[in-house]
Design a protein around this nucleic acid. Structure first.
Lengths: 195, 195
DNA sequence: AAGATAAACGAATATTCGTTCTTTTAAAAA
DNA sequence: TTTTTAAAAGAACGAATATTCGTTTATCTT
């Protein structure tokens, strides 16, 4: 029997993500995708049951890469400052290495597609919860509702990151996120979160 | 001549926003919209040149309401703590009074549609810039890059608000944003931003 | 080398899309 | 009341949509 060409699955995935980032969900048609990935429309259906199945699998794949990259060098028993900083750096690095994945996930997260599934639970890892729990025990960080903590610890970071990715300009020139600005914001967040 | 029924324009607008929030941009078809607004597809084209024109006008309308609501009771010469708190409360109130508008705008903002236009500039009002400038002069707040300031001042707020709107659950039960949690987060933000 | 099997293809399917055409209707102007 | 004019309707348009069908092709097994 003829062997599956695994390159094709990756080609479909990468082209689909690129198309969605460039033109949105309605910009992804199976025929245009087939043309971009240089294969027949029907071939897509060998790897994915349907358009909806494709979208779901794209999201799960991207989320998997995100989780892997985000946990690199991270340990739940780290001191708070070190652990949170690693999280920031990992997420920042992820957005630079996989910018299309990042933009795709943001688009997905803000679309109603996600509401029809129950994907959101996994977003916040139990490793992070454990990390925060121990840091609170050690008196390294204020004891807050999980959502308030998350909002303080990551809200500023993601706001900066999205400015950067969208090349938003608050005044004149487009914003570029530097290591210095990232560290500066991090210090402010630490200040807010000290017990 | 026959008079325009202005109710129709509003009906089209509200139904379109509801459809987009419920099913995404590709969930908005002119024929389904016509059915939902109880009129003929061709009637839509009396009020809007095309589907794209409709989407643009929806966004501008929603942004206009947002700006109006957000500036209520706000003055650029207010003291920093009072002014920023009014901004938080106004935006919170807006999200409660116009939840569909809020969700629509979030979806629009994270889609590539917005990249094809140049809408984003207006997002951050000059009134806000003036407000921050004076507060810095008076030594009420740290002097930061606009983007870093914005990320600190609004990042946590919007993260909380989106948890609330999406009914995300970080742990067990769905999150509900209370006045108390809002005030708590606000105090933490003030702490981070003090000079 | 021959046969088997699934990958891959490209054309064809029915449906839905945005938009326009033609006709009817209602209200303002005469 | 008659005329005029644009609002509103609904059927119809071609183009594009997701998916499937029948056939061909490549590679593994025998």
């Amino acid at each position: 029997m003829r062997a599956k060409d695994e390159n094709k699955e990756a080609a479909i995935r990468e082209q689909a993500i690129a198309m969605i980032v460039a033109e949105g969900f309605h910009g992804l048609s199976m025929q245009k995708l087939a043309k971009a990935a240089e294969l027949s429309p029907s071939t897509i259906y060998i790897y994915y049951d349907s358009r909806e199945d494709l979208l779901n699998k794209l999201f799960f794949y991207v989320e998997e890469v995100f989780n892997r990259e985000t946990l690199k060098g991270f340990d739940a028993r780290m001191h708070f400052e070190e652990g949170l900083w690693i999280q920031w750096k990992n997420r920042y690095r992820y957005s630079k290495e996989y910018p299309l994945y990042f933009l795709f996930a943001e688009q997905f997260r803000n679309s109603p597609l996600i509401r029809h599934k129950d994907i959101r639970e996994n977003r916040f890892r139990s490793a992070m919860q454990e990390f925060v729990y121990h840091a609170v025990q050690r008196g390294e960080v204020a004891d807050l509702t999980p959502e308030v903590f998350w909002a303080m610890a990551y809200g500023p970071f993601y706001t900066l990151l999205k400015f950067h990715m969208d090349q938003s300009s608050m005044s004149g020139k487009p914003f570029a996120l530097t290591d210095h600005k990232l560290k500066q914001a991090f210090r402010l967040v630490l200040k807010a979160l000290e017990p």
